[in-house]
Design a protein around this nucleic acid. Structure first.
Lengths: 226, 226
DNA sequence: GTTTTATCGGTATTTTTTTATTGATAAAAG
DNA sequence: CTTTTATCAATAAAAAAATACCGATAAAAC
């Protein structure tokens, strides 16, 4: 049961496959199987790439048939860790924090945000669709009692590192960071930062190139970016 | 002024450098210069990597001194296309749509969301901090008049492709997609999809590995992921 | 003024990732 | 029952990205 070595980039495509398979199941088009070819067409990826990605977590693929959709979904879920519910706590109940707190879609990834914390007294105690917002001072106590391992940071950049440190002190070991800073941490703690700036850069650059430099050169980076 | 060929992954680090430099300027620690070494330490990247990335968009680097922070920021902004304000329209004024619509932080990337559109009559006409939400039927007219080139999709997955098609029909050429589907489009249209699932997968997997398989093997993918 | 030190930027090397090629296999068609 | 077809998985080749190495240079130390 030794999992094949899977590359970072390959790993990051797995949730995309899963999402697609789930959509298929939801539509219930009674087809039980799907080929790597079909997946690659639907998602705009290379056929071989899809097959290689899938072969590293599954052995369901059969020539002329493809993969059993339901089974493959399960394998993906299991591999990605969606099967066991991940509970998380969130710090920073501002606009974004509240939006995440109330977002129901996380359930499908096995994530449940069980509580939020905020420094602002006005936010505290209020319920957002059944979720409680506690004063930040209670963080340690709460985490100790519940044993939560995942933390979500939605505070302004200035306070993000402090919150991060606090989380680590309290044995949180995976952090999802929405603040606009790179956080420092020991390397056994996984920090994953959401980065709007990167996305925006891709779009902005595309636009400004398209508008300004109307094909001065042959192969611009934009083209090379698939 | 022929820009060096810049790789996709290198490009995606540029906004991160810019963010860091801006933070430095904001703190105003009177240091006018910074070395690639210092940047790499702060961001946890390879020293050579930083230097290589920067050298492809700048010639400011001087031995023993480093880069002029302010000038380098400008070069980055210019290259990334933040200098010219990018106007955008948003379709789908649900929770996420409204959150983005009201987010002031976009200004620093040169993005301005000038209007939103929604199919739901109840949302229409309402102002959100000065922004208007129009009926979706007015989309074409609005875009033609203003000449906007960037579209943001924050509708549910089911309607995302339809919205995407509508945008393309109306000459939108860069699309920022927050819906959970991969959109099909001609390849001169840039579609950049935000993907929560990928982020969550990274975190979930880390957690479930950490909890379940307490070092069965030497080199897991988790370690290999930096 | 010479030596040392920090740092840059180019070239070379290694590693990682993607893409192409090929043989095997299971079902369908003849 | 043989041939064709769609597909998988393994290996090989190509491309892209990360890293290591090295000479050059500008400032600081001696």
């Amino acid at each position: 049961m030794t999992a094949k070595q899977i590359s970072k980039s390959s790993f990051q495509r797995l949730p995309i496959y899963l999402e697609y398979l789930r959509a298929l199941l939801a539509r219930d088009e009674k087809a039980a199987y799907i080929s790597a070819t079909a997946i690659s067409n639907a998602l705009g990826l290379g056929e071989v790439q899809v097959r290689k990605d899938l072969s590293s977590i599954s052995t369901l693929g059969k020539p002329k048939i493809g993969y059993n959709i339901a089974k493959l979904s399960h394998q993906l879920e299991k591999f990605l860790g969606y099967s066991n519910v991940n509970e998380a706590v969130l710090v920073g109940a501002g606009k974004l924090g509240k939006a995440l707190l109330n977002y129901r879609g996380f359930a499908q990834y096995g994530l449940r945000i069980i509580a939020a914390f905020d420094a602002d007294k006005n936010s505290i105690g209020k319920t957002q669709e059944g979720k409680f917002i506690y004063p930040i001072a209670d963080f340690g106590k709460f985490v100790k009692k519940t044993g939560v391992k995942m933390g979500i940071i939605t505070v302004p950049a200035e306070s993000a590192q402090a919150v991060c440190d606090m989380m680590i002190e309290n044995k949180i070991c995976a952090i999802w960071n929405f603040a606009n800073v790179s956080l420092k941490s020991p390397k056994d703690i996984l920090i994953h930062s959401e980065n709007m700036a990167v996305s925006l850069a891709v779009l902005s650059n595309h636009l400004s190139r398209q508008l300004n430099t109307v094909n001065k050169r042959r192969k611009t980076w934009t083209e090379s970016m698939k």
